[in-house]
Computed example of a mutant assay.
Amino acid sequence: MIEIGQLPNARAAQAFVDYLTGLGIESYIESLPQGVAIMLVGPQHEDTARSEFAQFVLHPHDEKYLQASWDNGNTQTKFDYGSGTLGLVQQFITGAGPLTLITFFICVLVYALMNLGMGNTLFSALSFAGAVPDSDVAEIWRVFTPSLMHFSAMHIIFNLLWWWYLGGKIETRLGSRPLLFLLLMAGTLPNILQFFITGPNFGGLSGVVYAVVGYTWLMGVRNPNCGIGLPPSYMGFMMVWLVLGFTDLLGMPIANGAHVGGLLVGLAQALFDSRKPSQV
Score class of each variant (00 low, 15 high):
Ser176Val: 12
Gly261Val: 01
Ile254Leu: 13
Gly227Cys: 03
Arg177Lys: 14
Ser176Asn: 07
Ile38Phe: 10
Pro200Cys: 15
Pro253His: 13
Gly167Gln: 05
His259Thr: 04
Met219Cys: 08
Pro133Trp: 03
Gly204Met: 05
Phe53Lys: 02
Trp164Met: 13
Gly73Ser: 09
His155Asp: 12
Trp217Ala: 15
Leu271Trp: 14
Asp18Thr: 04
His59Gly: 01
Ala258His: 12
Val57Cys: 14
Val132Trp: 15
Trp241Ile: 13
Leu182Gly: 00
Asn120Cys: 02
Ala112Leu: 15
Ser152Cys: 06
Asn201His: 15
Met149Ser: 08
Ala131Met: 02
Val209His: 08
Phe195Gln: 09
Ser206Phe: 14
Gly119Ile: 07
Tyr215Arg: 06
Leu218His: 04
Ser274Lys: 09
Val260Gly: 08
Lys169Ser: 12
Leu32Asp: 01
Thr247Gln: 07
Leu180Glu: 07
Val110Met: 06
Leu179Gln: 02
Glu26Pro: 00
Val36Trp: 05
Leu230Pro: 00
Met149Arg: 05
Thr188Gly: 05
Tyr111Lys: 00
His259Ala: 08
Asn256Tyr: 09
Phe195Asn: 08
Val221Met: 15
Ile140Val: 15
Pro43Thr: 13
Ala68Lys: 01
Tyr165His: 14
Asp136Ser: 13
Leu122Pro: 07
Gly227Leu: 02
Tyr19Leu: 03
Pro133Arg: 04
Ile93Lys: 10
Gly251Phe: 11
Ala10Ser: 08
Gln76Met: 12
Met154Trp: 15
Lys276Arg: 13
Met219Ser: 07
Glu139Asn: 08
Leu58Asp: 09
Met118Arg: 14
Lys64Ala: 10
Tyr111Ile: 01
Val240Glu: 02
His150Arg: 11
Leu174Tyr: 12
Ala268Thr: 15
Gly220Arg: 08
Ile93Phe: 12
Gln14Arg: 11
Leu116Phe: 13
Pro231Gln: 07
Asp136Trp: 09
Arg275Cys: 02
Met149Asp: 01
Gly262Asn: 06
Met239Val: 14
Arg222Cys: 13
Met1Pro: 09
Asn159Lys: 03
Ser206Glu: 11
Val110Glu: 04
His259Met: 11
